[in-house]
């Protein structure tokens, strides 16, 4: 249960495949990073997992069953939460409304109050901004809303697409602290980052993506020491 397996996944837009032959496994409770430079296909992989983009070949399995053509909303309901690139918040709605909107089904609805209390406990700054429109918040606060919204759906796997982009180091540290607290409670994590150093320090294992293909995988600590990775991504 709660195991995500991608096998031989290819996907893309128009005629060309952006990603090819992607094999990736996230065991329950594991923290996995997907790193690579801009345009390597990281967000494309995220979209084949959360259902915003169909796979062309290969399979995505979750909880032991192939997801196939399952809609994005059903994947969310099945426990795959996404903090998407660009956040995709509801800018005219208040912070609370953004969070509540992610709890309109099944168990998430039944535990709505509990979920809200939890998110506000994790991000006390959001509690202060509860009645404010999301579009008026700072970038860091918006990212917190996006994470909080994903948590409201009661995910077992949380997929984060570039959560640190454009944020001040202090805010990034705050967000990563919350993420590590969540994973201690058994949440699995797929962290997609351009910031290789930061993500390798926050996860158990990592995949390196180059031009749509996975070129390296291994324990995060080993990759941090890998001369190839250091040269290509850490500028050392």
């Amino acid at each position: 249960m709660s195991r995500l397996v991608l096998q031989g996944v290819a996907a893309g837009y128009g005629k060309a495949n952006v990603i090819r032959g992607i094999d990736l496994t996230i065991e329950r409770g594991r923290r996995v990073a997907l790193v690579g430079s801009n345009g390597a296909g990281k967000s494309t992989i995220v979209k084949t997992i959360n259902g915003l983009l169909p796979t062309r070949t290969g399979t995505v399995d979750w909880d032991g069953a192939t997801l196939g053509a399952m809609k994005a909303s059903d994947r969310t309901r099945a426990g795959i939460g996404t903090v998407p690139e660009g956040r995709m918040l509801f800018p005219e709605c208040t912070v609370t409304e953004n969070l509540v909107a992610a709890s309109t089904f099944g168990a998430a609805r039944a535990h709505r109050e509990e979920g809200l209390a939890r998110v506000y406990e994790l991000f006390p700054r959001l509690r202060e901004r509860a009645g404010q429109r999301a579009g008026t918040l700072s970038g860091g606060e918006q990212q917190m809303v996006a994470i909080g919204r994903a948590l409201m759906t009661r995910p077992r796997l949380l997929v984060l697409d570039e959560p640190s982009i454009g944020l001040a180091p202090k805010v990034v540290a705050e967000i990563f602290e919350v993420l590590s607290a969540l994973t201690r409670e058994g949440l699995s994590l797929l962290l997609v980052e351009q910031n290789v150093q930061l993500s390798l320090r926050s996860v158990d294992e990592a995949y390196v993506l180059r031009q749509g293909e996975i070129v390296l995988r291994g324990p995060a600590a080993a990759l941090l020491d890998d001369p190839q990775v250091r040269a290509a991504y850490l500028g050392q």
Partner: peptide, 24 residues
């Protein structure tokens, strides 16, 4: 109501709503 909120958020971000578990 939830239905009203759902319609308002779908009008603001369709993908954001789908990722919130809302059936578009």
């Amino acid at each position: 109501t939830d239905l009203g909120l759902i319609m308002r958020v779908v009008s603001q971000s369709r993908d954001g709503a789908a990722l919130s578990g809302i059936d578009i």
